[in-house]
Design a protein around this nucleic acid. Structure first.
Length: 557
RNA sequence: GCCCCUGUAGCUCAGCGGAUAGAGCACUGGCCUCCGAAGCCAGUUGCGGCGGUUCGAGUCCGCCCAGGGGUACCA
């Protein structure tokens, strides 16, 4: 049981006792909020229950607190419970209980902090699904990092998670990309061919065209244009996907499933099937030569076109089919999508569509990540693949490194807007707090090496000797990890993980400053053993955090 | 116009309606005969504005100001 749940349970029991003996009137309990006080003077946990209770029972909060404290059941984990003005009850954890908990960290090792759940919930997490019409830019890096860490955290929090990249390999943007590539191919070979209107003019298209030439020479030149576009397009798509995949791997982002729109939806007839379902459910109407989804029936501001008057399905229609596939074909209990803020207008109609196919919209969660604005000096530019005006994710990773990059993005909440320029990124990479955390891990590795060299076997170290305030503070911080993972599993607030890791590192560095681990003094042999055990626990927790964040845990720096 | 997000220290950002608003960077001054000084300690500066709800508001509500995004038979 998590400590905060234990505290809540103890508090509830106390209120029930008070209601039984008549010192508090009977009545429903308010929600017990267990807090982590900011100041150590206020204990390790606190509840403001008396303050919340005061109005409904008409008793002064300090009086409520004082009558509740003696009724709180004794528990090994808690050594002290006290009342604090204006009506808090503070709980202090028992040092000897804390010390013993170190053994559970060693036992659980790589799985320390994992949460077990009674019901198995299958979650699909889809993110960073960029059209394969160009490389990923820094904005995508943000969602990619967030998604990969969230998947790690959800798995640790006891959910069954499948990560997915949706390959948007059909539609007008792809045609546009294919035609752009064809035009560049022809131009490179000296044939005057116009770029399509609003084509992709980034230099990477020219690079792709040159690569096509290197491998295929001029064999597409004499071909009918339509056929040549299709063949060159297929080569370009394949290459683009491989670039995207490698770019993602370079920041340590991997997917369980790469889902092709063409292969998994179109070839299996799912868009038509979904349209029929919507028709059966009574949400389809034909108007002005197009087929509309009557989302106004579900409270939306306007209806949306599904099939254009040209006969082409819209992006929205295909996304409904895709979500139908997620929920109905594959049966995920919950689907989480991470989208950029430019898709924000798509959120509520997507939820409406999901409910139209008979799925509770609560099962679809959409995280909107604010866009990353790019700066060239003082000038803000809009990232666009079409104009080629962008800093690619690969540029960023090559420049600042995957670990610093991940920590940089992960530390910010998705809704924070960022202005991004390479100078800042370089500066941040040199001074990135990620090294503060990794340094703690490397320091520990150094200590453990020393212990190994001296053949010190600390397995039977007596944890009862760890009484220094820096040691106790460090243990408390380590034992907070399960609670954090549980919290993030519910709230998706992945940015709390780097924050926690930084706090843990601070606690470790302070301990290191205060307490000599491997002592030369013969009298301190037992203490050395105990501290080595503590340090080993610490290594486990740091390794866990770094691994959850998808970063390396260096032995040396 | 309407909808969503944001405004906290010089800069980049945390802050579940709670008790003295925190980190990192930057700046200043201390700390290595001792397991890694990429570390530790100390110091300076702040909730965009005006009302409201509450025992208690950076946090919730309303209005205003400022920035980003959306408002297509684009994706």
């Amino acid at each position: 049981m998590l400590l905060k749940h234990l505290i809540a349970k103890l508090a509830i029991q106390a209120v029930e006792s008070a209601q039984e003996n008549g010192s508090l009137p009977a009545g429903p309990l308010p929600e017990i909020e267990v807090e982590r006080p900011q100041h150590s003077d206020h204990g390790d946990f606190a509840i403001s229950l008396p303050l919340r209770l005061t109005r409904s029972v008409g008793i002064n909060p300090m009086v409520i607190a004082q009558l509740l404290v003696p009724l709180i059941p004794k528990n090994d984990a808690v050594s002290e419970v006290r009342v604090a003005s204006p009506g808090f009850i503070n709980f202090v954890l028992n040092p000897s209980w804390l010390q013993k908990e170190l053994n559970s960290i060693i036992q659980e090792s790589d799985s320390f902090g994992n949460i077990k759940r009674d019901v198995n919930e299958r979650i699909q997490l889809e993110f960073a699904s960029v059209n394969p019409t160009g490389p990923l830019h820094v904005g995508h890096a943000r969602t990619a990092v967030l998604g990969s860490v969230l998947s790690n955290l959800l798995a640790a929090a006891g959910f069954e998670v499948s990560t997915e990249y949706y390959i948007n390999d059909a539609g007008t943007q792809m045609d546009n990309f294919y035609k752009s590539l064809y035009a560049r191919y022809m131009q490179e070979l000296g044939h005057q061919t116009d770029m399509p209107e609003s084509g992709y003019i980034g230099s990477y298209i020219t690079d792709l065209a040159k690569e096509v030439i290197t491998k295929n020479q001029n064999r597409f030149v004499e071909m009918p244009e339509e056929k040549a576009v299709a063949q060159i397009g297929a080569l370009g798509l394949k290459k683009m996907l491989s670039i995207i995949r490698k770019d993602l791997e370079s920041v340590n982002v991997n997917f369980d499933v790469w889902f092709s729109e063409t292969d998994e939806l179109h070839k299996k007839g799912e868009p038509d099937a979904t349209l029929n379902e919507l028709k059966k459910a009574g949400y389809i109407v034909n108007r002005e030569g197009a087929t509309w989804f009557e989302s106004t029936k579900l409270g939306e501001e306007r209806d949306n076109v599904l099939i254009r008057s040209t006969g082409e399905p819209t992006y929205f229609a295909l996304d409904i089919a895709y979500h139908s596939n997620k929920f109905l074909t594959r049966g995920f209990d919950r689907v989480i999508n991470i989208w950029g803020a430019d898709h924000q207008g798509h959120v509520s109609r997507m939820k409406a569509a999901v409910s139209a196919i008979g799925v509770d919209p609560e099962r679809l969660q959409i995280i909107i990540s604010q866009l990353v604005a790019l700066k060239h000096g003082d000038e803000v530019v809009r990232a666009s693949k079409r104009t080629g005006e962008m800093i690619t994710m690969r540029d960023l990773v090559d420049e600042v490194g995957a670990d610093a990059c991940r920590f940089f993005f992960l530390s910010r909440t998705p809704e924070s807007q960022m202005e991004f320029d390479m100078e800042l990124a370089k500066k941040e990479s040199a001074d990135n707090p990620v090294y503060y955390v990794q340094y703690a891990h490397a320091r520990i590795a150094g200590i453990m090496n020393l212990a190994n060299q001296n053949s010190l076997d600390y397995t039977s170290g007596d944890v009862g000797l760890l009484t220094h305030s820096a040691e106790i503070a460090l243990i408390k911080k380590m034992l907070a990890l399960p609670e954090l993972i549980d919290h993030i599993g519910d709230s998706m607030e992945a940015h709390l993980l780097p924050k926690y890791a930084t706090e843990l590192a601070a606690a470790f560095h302070w301990f290191y400053q205060q307490c000599r681990v491997v002592s030369e003094i013969p009298d301190e042999f037992a203490l050395t053993m105990a501290r080595l055990k503590l340090v080993e626990c610490c290594r486990i927790v740091f390794a866990r955090c770094l691994s959850l964040m998808g970063m390396s845990a260096p032995e040396k720096m």
